[in-house]
Amino acid sequence: MNGSGSHHTWGALGYWLSARIRFFNTIGCTMVAHNPDSWEGWYWGAMHHWGYSARNGGGETYGTVEDCLKNAEMIVFWSSDPEATSGVYGAHEGTIRRQWLKNSASPVSTSILTTITRQHGLGESGWRRGRAPIAPWCWRSRTYG
C-alpha cells in the first residue's frame, strides 16, 4: 500500500501525487521504491521492453486485427462492452475495431457478453471471488457491413 505500483492513476491513495504520502506520513511508514516498469527489466519491465510474456498458453494477442477484420464472421466481446469498457482491459480497443468493421466489406455479427464484465480485471479483487456483484445479462447481437 505504501508504494503506488504500476497503476498509479488508480484510486485516491494509489496515485503518486495523491494523499497517499500524507496519509502514510501520519501513521509512519517505510517507503518502498519499487520500479515496476523499468526498462532494465525488473518486474513488468522485461515484458514491456523485450516483448513477449508468458501467457499460460494463451495466444499472443498482438497483430491479430488484420486476421480479425479479414476473416472473422463474428466477434464475441467477453467480459467487456466496447461502448462502456473500451480501452485497457476492455477487449482490445473494441470501439475502433467496430468502426473498422463498419467500414469493411463483409458483414460481421457481434455478441456482447457483459454478464461477467470486468471479472478478469486484476484490480477488482472482490469480483474474483464468487460471482460478480451484479449480473446484468446482456447479449446484444448486431451485424455490421
Binding site: 479479414k70 463474428m74 466481446f77
Partner: peptide, 14 residues
C-alpha cells in the same frame, strides 16, 4: 474472434 476483457485471454481468430 473472441475479444475478451482482461489480460492474456484472447483467442487468435478466425
Amino acid at each position: 474472434y473472441l475479444a475478451a476483457g482482461g489480460l492474456t485471454v484472447s483467442e487468435p481468430p478466425a
